[in-house]
Design a protein around this nucleic acid. Structure first.
Length: 419
RNA sequence: GUGAGAGUAGCUCAGUCGGUAGAGCGCCGGAUUGUGGUUCCGGUGGUCGCGGGUUCGAUCCCCGUCUCUCACCCCA
C-alpha cells in the first residue's frame, strides 16, 4: 500500500467542512478590515529564506525541504509565508505604489521536522501582513482584527502575550547584556541552554528548564533596554490595546524564533495542544523588506497555525460546520424510477436545493439507511405511485414522519419555505 | 537529529507462557417482494507493518527497517 509521506496527512470529510468554514470565516473577517488575499508559490529560491529567516536559524539550516531543480536552481518549499509576501511586495513594485498594503494568505507550509502533536511536515498557516505602516496603531488594529476573528470562531478567554524586542540598533545591545549575565550562570545550565547561549542568547529566556527560573528572574529585561522610540511605540500600543479592550499580558521573556522581528512581538498559546502550544505568533519586521533588497518599509504580521487552530476549535463552531452540510437525499424506489429521479434532482438543484442522488441505489431501504448514516435530515422518495400522481414523498429522517408533496411545491418545501 | 511507546479485520482492541487468530462496531443478505436509527438470524471479513535471524514450527523471541504516537530540539 502506498501511504502519504511522513508528517503529511489527508484531511477527510466531514473534517474538511470545519476547515472550509474556518477559512470562509477568516476571509470574511479579513475583508472587513480591508485586507486582500495574496497567493505566493509554494516553491521559492532557497536564498529568500536564508536572507529573511536567518542562515543560523534551525528552520533554514535543518528544517527546509531544499533541492536543486532541473535547471540548476536552488529552491526550497516555503517554511513560512512572510518572506514570500515581502518578496512579492518588492518584486511587483508595491513600495513605489506607496501607501499601506494589507494582505492575507492561507496555505500550506513545509518544515522537515519530527512530527508530533500539533506539528506536521506539511501544515497550513493563515496569516495577515501590513506593509508600509510603522505606527503602533497599525499593531493595535492587527491585534483587534485577530481577536475579532478568534471571537467569531467561538474562542473565549484567550489572551495575547506581548513583548518588544527593540530596534535593530538596541536589540544587539540588549543581547550583549543578556549574554554577559547568563555567562556568569553558565555552570547551572544544561547542554541545550549552553548551546543557545552561544548561538542565540535570547532563546535561553524560552527554556523549559525550571531550575533556571531564579537565574532568569534576575536577568536583564529587553523592555529595560529599549531605545526611546521603541519604548514609546510599545507604550502607545499598550494604551491602544487597553482602549480596545484586547486581553494582553506583557511577557518580558517572550522572544520569537524568526530573526527578522523588531519591536512588537506576540503570540497566543492555547490549552490542549500538547507541547506545541503556540496557536499563533507574529511581530513587527521593519527591516525585512530592505533586507530583501527593497526600500526601507516597515511591516507587521502574524501567522496562525491552522492545523492547531482546528485542533482546539470550540465545539459550537465545529458542530455548525459539520451540520451545515446536509443535502436532501433523493431515493428512487425501483430502477425504473431513476430517470424521473434524475430529472427531479436537476430541477431541485436549479432551484438551489442541494441534492444527493445515488443512481445505483437499491431501493428505499438501503437508500434511507445510507441517507441517515450520511447525516441527511430529509429524504425525497420517488416511485411508480408518486410518478403517476405527480408528487414525491418527503420524509423527515429525524422525526420519522413523511408527507406527499406536489412536485411543483417541492423546491419551496425543501428550502423550508413552507407555505 | 535524540529518547520512549505502539503497529493484529474497514474502525476500536483482545489474544497466542512459540503450534499459522478472536470480539465489538461496521459492511452484505434475510426476517420486512416500496420505507432507514431498535431487535433477531446468517454471511463477508486478516500477507498479525515489511525484511531477515533463531526454531521442527514465529503473529509471539532477536536484529534491522518503515509508519504512527508522545516528548526533546525547534516552532504555527
Amino acid at each position: 500500500m502506498i501511504t502519504s509521506v511522513k508528517g503529511m496527512r489527508d484531511l477527510l470529510p466531514p473534517e474538511t467542512r470545519v476547515w472550509n468554514r474556518l477559512e470562509e470565516t477568516t476571509r470574511a473577517v479579513f475583508s472587513l478590515y480591508g485586507y486582500d488575499e495574496i497567493r505566493t508559490p509554494v516553491l521559492e529560491p532557497t536564498e529568500l529564506f536564508v536572507r529573511s529567516v536567518g542562515e543560523a536559524s534551525d528552520i533554514v539550516h535543518k528544517e527546509m525541504y531544499s533541492f536543486t531543480d532541473r535547471g540548476g536552481r536552488e529552491v526550497s518549499l516555503r517554511p513560512e509565508n512572510t518572506a514570500s509576501v515581502a518578496r512579492a511586495f518588492v518584486e511587483h513594485g508595491m513600495p513605489q505604489a506607496g501607501g499601506v498594503k494589507k494582505l492575507y494568505y492561507v496555505g500550506p507550509q513545509y518544515r522537515y521536522e519530527r512530527p508530533q502533536k500539533g506539528r506536521y511536515r506539511e501544515f497550513r498557516q493563515i496569516g495577515a501582513e501590513v506593509l508600509g505602516a510603522a505606527d503602533p496603531a497599525t499593531d493595535a488594529e492587527l491585534l483587534v482584527m485577530l481577536f475579532d476573528l478568534l471571537g467569531r470562531l467561538g474562542f473565549t478567554g484567550l489572551s495575547v502575550s506581548l513583548n518588544s524586542v527593540g530596534s535593530e540598533e538596541s536589540r544587539p545591545v540588549y543581547v550583549e547584556a543578556l549574554r554577559e549575565y547568563l555567562l556568569a550562570h553558565e555552570e547551572k545550565m544544561g547542554e541545550d541552554d549552553r548551546r543557545r547561549l552561544r548561538e542565540n542568547p535570547l532563546r535561553v529566556l524560552d527554556t523549559k528548564d525550571r531550575s533556571l527560573a531564579e537565574v532568569l528572574a534576575g536577568a536583564p529585561r529587553v523592555l529595560d533596554h529599549l531605545d526611546p522610540a521603541s519604548r514609546t511605540h510599545h507604550e502607545e500600543l499598550l494604551a491602544l490595546l487597553d482602549a480596545e479592550r484586547i486581553p494582553y499580558l506583557v511577557e518580558p521573556r517572550l522572544v520569537r524564533g524568526l530573526d527578522y522581528y523588531t519591536r512588537t512581538v506576540f503570540e497566543v498559546t492555547a490549552e490542549g495542544l500538547g507541547a506545541q502550544n503556540a496557536l499563533l505568533g507574529g511581530g513587527r519586521y521593519d527591516r525585512l523588506v530592505s533586507d530583501l533588497g527593497g526600500p526601507r518599509t516597515p511591516g507587521i504580521g502574524f501567522a496562525i497555525g491552522e492545523d492547531r487552530l482546528v485542533d482546539v476549535l470550540p465545539e459550537g463552531f465545529r458542530r455548525a460546520a459539520i451540520d451545515g452540510f446536509s443535502p436532501v437525499a433523493l431515493v428512487a424506489i425501483e430502477p425504473e424510477d431513476r430517470a424521473a429521479a434524475l430529472a427531479l434532482a436537476g430541477e431541485l438543484r436549479r432551484a438551489g436545493v442541494a441534492v444527493d442522488f445515488d443512481p445505483a441505489g437499491k431501493g428505499p431501504g438501503a437508500g434511507l439507511k445510507a441517507a441517515s448514516s450520511k447525516g441527511c435530515r430529509t429524504a425525497v422518495l420517488v416511485g411508480r405511485r408518486e410518478r403517476e400522481s405527480g408528487v414525491a414523498v418527503v420524509k423527515d429522517l429525524v422525526e420519522r414522519s413523511q408527507k406527499e408533496v406536489p412536485l411543483a411545491d417541492l423546491p419551496h418545501v425543501l428550502k423550508g419555505e413552507t407555505a
